[in-house]
């Protein structure tokens, strides 16, 4: 595919204790804002924008992010990724991220919202070197529908492949397909509308950390349900079923706070957007 609707390339490295961009390139319907340093740690934060306002029929996006040794980057979006009706060709996004030794990436985008008859596929490949750390989250939500239908999108599909030193270590494939499935049924969304996922990878993960995260976010509640599990490499994954973006964002923020305190010895900043 050569005709991308939007292309974004961001290469980061450390210069005198601060993570800076060695190269920023964007074209079409992708844009990044000026870097922001929320604290004194040198960790940089970039906001991605979609000036087009949403993904339409046949749109395709490509993102390439690299973190050089020791680089620390927070990547987020300025607003939700809205997927509109795709009558002919699904909307597609491809992301490749490279994390060199000792680097840390926080990827915390706003939710993906699937509107009526939307079809969307997202492929994310993350290549990590030993000693790199990752905090990855995503949220899938249904868009408001005039008919009051809870799930009016056709398909939202997210595939994550994470490689550690070139070996596949995590393969995460979610495909929500209300067009052919009963989403409220047993085993599916089970009465919830939003799905949040979190993948955290880092050599410092142990069962104490996972227990700590679980204690912090676990609650007997009808508002959400969580599942937390250790990965085959040091790290864990979290799934959240809920009925609002805020509920999931709060859980993700709680996890982020613990990881930042434990691994970076700092408290994360609130990502102001509005």
């Amino acid at each position: 595919m050569e005709d991308w609707t939007g292309i974004l390339r961001l290469d980061t490295e450390v210069r005198s204790g601060k993570t800076v961009a060695r190269n920023v390139y964007f074209q079409g319907a992708y844009k990044v804002m000026r870097p922001i340093y929320h604290d004194e740690s040198g960790q940089v934060c970039y906001y991605i924008l979609n000036p087009g306002g949403g993904y339409l029929d046949g749109d395709s996006y490509k993102m390439q992010i690299t973190l050089d040794k020791q680089a620390q980057l927070t990547l987020t979006t300025q607003s939700a990724t809205k997927i509109y009706k795709t009558p002919h060709t699904l909307a597609y996004q491809e992301t490749v991220m490279d994390l060199k030794e000792g680097s840390y990436l926080e990827y915390i985008p706003d939710p993906i919202i699937g509107y009526r008859d939307a079809r969307y596929k997202q492929k994310t490949n993350i290549h990590m070197e030993k000693g790199a750390a990752l905090f990855y989250s995503d949220i899938i939500t249904p868009g408001w529908s005039p008919s009051g239908e809870r799930f009016s999108y056709n398909t939202l599909q997210l595939i994550n492949e994470i490689y550690m030193d070139n070996e596949l270590a995590v393969y995460d494939h979610v495909k929500l397909n209300p067009a052919t499935k009963n989403m409220d049924g047993l085993g599916q969304m089970e009465g919830f509308s939003h799905l949040g996922s979190l993948i955290v990878i880092g050599e410092k993960t142990d069962s104490n950390l996972i227990d700590k995260v679980y204690q912090a976010i676990h609650k007997d509640s009808t508002e959400f349900k969580i599942g937390l599990s250790e990965l085959p490499i040091p790290g864990f994954t979290l799934r959240v079923l809920a009925n609002s973006t805020q509920t999931i964002e709060k859980i993700v923020a709680d996890c982020q706070r613990i990881i930042n305190e434990e691994w970076l010895n700092k408290t994360p900043s609130f990502l102001r957007k509005y």
Binding site: V174, M189, Y214, G227, L228
Partner: peptide, 19 residues
């Protein structure tokens, strides 16, 4: 390409079992 698709509720119940 269909390999590994999971249903959220099923997977969550498998994770919950650990606790």
């Amino acid at each position: 390409d269909d390999f590994g698709i999971v249903s959220p509720g099923l997977e969550l119940s498998q994770m919950k079992h650990e606790r």
